[in-house]
Design a protein around this nucleic acid. Sequence first.
DNA 1: GCTCCTATGTTGACATTGTTCACATGAGAT
DNA 2: ATCTCATGTGAACAATGTCAACATAGGAGC
Lengths: 202, 202
Amino acid sequence: MSRNYHHGALAEAMVDQALADVRVQGAEHVSLRSIAQTLEVSPSSAYNHFADKDDLLRAVGACGLAALDERMARVLAAHPADNPDAARARFSGLGRAYLAFAIDETHLFQLTFGPICAVQEIPPEDTGPYNKLTTALDDLDRWQLLKPGIRSDLDLMVWASTHGMATLLVEGAVPPESVDAFIDSMARLVFIEGALSAAEGR
Amino acid sequence: MSRNYHHGALAEAMVDQALADVRVQGAEHVSLRSIAQTLEVSPSSAYNHFADKDDLLRAVGACGLAALDERMARVLAAHPADNPDAARARFSGLGRAYLAFAIDETHLFQLTFGPICAVQEIPPEDTGPYNKLTTALDDLDRWQLLKPGIRSDLDLMVWASTHGMATLLVEGAVPPESVDAFIDSMARLVFIEGALSAAEGR
DNA sequence: GCTCCTATGTTGACATTGTTCACATGAGAT
DNA sequence: ATCTCATGTGAACAATGTCAACATAGGAGC
């Protein structure tokens, strides 16, 4: 009652608060009512902006995807792909960024790629994480750093690997220390012999 | 009241019913009360056998893991690893079994590897899916079918890949048709050149 | 500047859920 | 036959998602 939200900012405020709550408790334990209470707003006001609790959570999941994409974009920006070393650094850096996101933002990661936020199939004109991976692989291919004959469907393979490793990290099935082993193993699989640097990534 | 469960079978009955419910509605939408109601039992009776709703769900998740393991065991039993072709078939077959489980039992897969059932780190004497993968890789190595130098940490890599692909399938991020592309890509990465068979697996 | 409409927030209510506590009861050991 | 403990019951509580009827503020149109 102190502040009233008759200025259209409630939707954003709820997403922000939900995002904060998801970060600390995980999506399973956030409650519409407590969000409303924190914002000093009636529980039912949410239904003017979101069809559903899940609808709100989907908005939070979209924030998660955006955060991941931003991390990956930063990696690309840091390494202009104008030489082989940078191309390798891009590739490994993208992987590390993905895994770091999973480790740092476990709950957000789980929501973003969980059952609530159905990830739609990647559209051709996508500019998100998947597209960034594809361009990194194209760069590697252009510099002839990939083992011969493996380029086709490599996007799917690398995406699945990295996403799977992230999931295993998040579930605690694998300790964070094994990230290096994973990245090394990946490098051994895809890079031509002799092109392995001692410390992949950064 | 018709049948009373004073014979100790309630725990199993609840797990069975919960398993059935998870299969159709997904773990997020199963309710202790409705399970009790189906079994014609009081809601609170569950607490004589399970600490918690999550405790019951963890039992269901264990069933899921067992079902997955059984599928993989069937693959190993079907291909005695006494020749190179069989060793390759084992490897690809295990991958296909994992992915088939994810596709057939989406909800159970999500529960088994979801936040509720924290997957503990793999113990050294494990005999489950991870161990089966390791032995399949050892077989490939013994027959010298792997590209040189990639064996170390390959378990982690292959596990992550397959698990990640399964997750992508379950989330709908990738259509079931791409399983073949995934398996082929995997084969291109790990098998020595010339050892690729036209139809990996079966 | 007045009026009306629509977007937005409130009140109160309902059904459902997980969980607990005090109590009943039945089967097996003594 | 009695005692005891494991197991199931009944009633209750707090919390949650959701909805329908209602209030109101602030801008659009005159």
